Simulated assay, not measured.
Amino acid sequence: MFIHRKNAFGSLMLFSFIVAAFFSLASANAKDITLERIERTNNFVIGFRSDKHPFSAVTPSGEVDGYSIDLCKGIYESLKKNLNKPDLKLKMIEVTADNRFDYINAGTVDIICSASSWTLERQKKVSFSLLTYVTGAEMLVKDDSRIRSLKNLSGKKAGMIYGTLTSDIMTKRIKRDKLDIELVSYKYPDQGIEALENKEIDAYIADRIILIGLLDAASAPNDLKLVNRFYSYDPYALMFERQSLDFKLLVDSYLAELYRSDKSLELFNKWFSHMGIRSNENILRAMFKLQSIPE
């Protein structure tokens, strides 16, 4: 009787081992959903935001360009090589703050190339590449304003961009500190600049680099100024399907190789050097070095 139980236990262990090995092999042989789609359709589809200069924007001639767009064009070239598909097509689809996560999970786009903030909460829905930029929330005010902090905004209006990490963080902070600030949300970043210039709001709160990009296009940039105080930490990264680990490896490998080379500084000079000290060059150089992961 004792021997019978031992044999049954051994058989159960053997069965469990076989099942585990089967699923492990199946998992190892399963194709990455993003790479499989790219190979099947012969298309690499980039999702972009049209209002996130200098990361992604539409030029007056109708072209899509920006720092993040250049990164994804490099990934496109890497895909052609790694998948042995020299005729791979590149497509671009505009996304919004509302639909970008749905577009990734539905397979409408393969990657989001813009100014996307990497958070642990968002990582429950999508995956992220290595960091592409580091910034934080700041305030833009009129040049003659005496506003230097959130407390100075008591009894006043502040504009923010709808659907952003900055908007979520600042809303919670203002509520936590019980500050009497009326928040006005704008769907498009340039709407906030117009409201500030027209004195409809007293401050515009957004990621520093986005505010600088908006200043570049403002009708009277000298009438506006940054308060030079960060209110959050905002890391940017490229977004794609959460389970696509092979695709992530390809994306991260390209970025790490880029960061190890002089090409990263060429991209910095192309998109950020004109901003001078406002570009946070030292922080970005450190980011490049820290993510220069060896092969």
Rank of each mutant, 00 (worst) to 15 (best):
T59Y: 12
N222H: 14
Q191E: 15
W118C: 00
I210D: 13
N152K: 11
L284A: 03
P54G: 04
C72L: 05
I93V: 10
D223G: 13
K151F: 14
A28R: 09
G74D: 13
I212E: 11
A30N: 00
Y67D: 04
S68D: 02
Y67R: 04
K85S: 08
N222F: 14
K175A: 14
G107K: 00
L12C: 04
K89Y: 02
K142N: 14
L153W: 08
E241S: 03
Y259P: 03
S127V: 02
I3R: 04
I75A: 01
G74V: 03
I69D: 03
L290K: 07
G62A: 10
S149H: 06
R260C: 02
D207W: 01
R148K: 08
A195Y: 07
L150C: 14
L71V: 01
P60N: 05
V251T: 06
M287E: 07
L88P: 05
L215W: 10
F17W: 13
K151V: 14
A20E: 12
H4K: 08
F17N: 12
L226K: 08
E36A: 15
S264T: 08
R100W: 09
I104K: 02
R49Q: 12
I111P: 03
I112S: 01
T132Y: 10
R37N: 00
G213V: 01
R208T: 11
T59N: 09
S149D: 10
G163P: 12
R100P: 02
L35M: 10
M13K: 12
G107R: 03
T41D: 10
S117K: 11
M160F: 11
L183Q: 09
F9W: 08
P189A: 06
N282F: 14
D190C: 08
D87W: 04
E257D: 03
Y186L: 05
A137N: 05
A20I: 06
V45E: 05
Y76R: 01
L179C: 09
G276K: 00
L267A: 00
S219P: 14
D143F: 15
L150H: 06
E138K: 05
S279R: 07
T119K: 14
S78A: 15
R49H: 13
R49W: 12
Q191L: 14
F15Q: 05
L258M: 07
S292W: 01
D190I: 12
F2W: 07
L290G: 06
E295M: 12
L35S: 01
R260M: 10
S16E: 11
S244H: 06
Y236W: 07
K175D: 13
L258D: 00
S27V: 01
L153M: 13
L265F: 14
T59K: 08
I293R: 10
I169N: 07
D102P: 07
H4R: 00
N282R: 15
W118A: 02
N228Q: 09
R5S: 06
I112C: 01
I205M: 14
C72V: 09
R49N: 12
A286K: 15
S273T: 13
G66D: 02
N7H: 06
E182H: 10
N42E: 06
W271F: 01
L284T: 05
Q243E: 12
N269S: 11
W118V: 02
N84A: 09
